[in-house]
Nucleic acid binder design. Structure first.
Length: 215
DNA sequence: AACTCGGGGCA
DNA sequence: TGCCCAGAGTT
């Protein structure tokens, strides 16, 4: 794990590298972001946006989703993989929003993860991007990148989230979350990381391990 | 901890 | 054509 000074420098470099990093899902309300994030699991935001642009045009809000049947929603989101599970979870989530939360998307972790199909990752995305609550959603990119570059040193998502919150100043959580995702998608890719254009190699253990192997 | 869901984008 | 994708629930 990086030392305090190295962490500060790393965060600076990440910001400089991805100054415009932001949530790339299209949404207008917390409810829409919740649905879009649920759809984004194991899928690409490009595909999700194509579907949600059309979906939210026809069904913009919770009350509209309540009229949707399982098969009907499945057809609407069929271009996205895992569509049966997702349709089922979204409808169950909508039902619970009405029954338990007065039709409003809750703005806290505990209530969000009580919703069907909503885990910590999805909850953090909604808290951060829809409610302005400082949060770090540890998805595959955040996990991979933060552990590679030494912002975390953990073998699971929970520890990674814990360490990131400790290592990153609270006011930077939401931005850092997007820096790490953008870095993971554009430079620190899973299979073929572009270390030759990465500005973080100075402290990066992963880079050093690759360099040591001569590749 | 391993398994399942899954069509579309992209090399 | 084959591999991978802003995860979560179940076993």
């Amino acid at each position: 794990m990086l030392k305090k000074k190295e962490i500060e420098k790393t965060l600076e470099l990440l910001e400089k590298t991805h100054p415009t990093a932001h949530c790339e899902l299209n949404f207008r309300t917390p409810f829409q972001l919740l649905v879009a994030t649920m759809l984004s699991a194991q899928s690409t935001d490009k595909t999700v946006n194509k579907v949600t642009d059309r979906l939210f045009e026809k069904y913009p809000a919770l009350e509209d989703f309540l009229k949707l049947g399982q098969e009907e929603l499945e057809q609407e989101i069929k271009e996205i993989g895992l569509y049966r599970n997702k349709a089922k979870n979204i409808l169950a989530m909508c039902s619970k929003l009405v029954k338990k939360f007065n039709g409003e998307v809750p703005a806290n972790m505990e209530d969000l993860v009580s919703l069907p199909g909503v885990g910590r990752k999805t909850a953090n995305v909604v808290l951060s991007n829809a409610f302005g609550v400082p949060a770090i959603a540890v998805d595959t990119h955040v996990f991979r990148v933060s552990n590679r570059i030494g912002l975390a040193e953990a073998d699971n998502v929970e520890k990674t989230e814990e360490q990131l919150m400790k290592n990153i100043p609270r006011e930077k959580w939401s931005k850092a979350h997007h820096w790490l995702i953008w870095h993971g998608r554009r430079i620190c890719e899973a299979r073929k990381p572009k270390c030759e254009i990465c500005p973080l190699t100075e402290y990066c253990k992963y880079y050093k391990s690759i360099a040591a192997k001569g590749k």
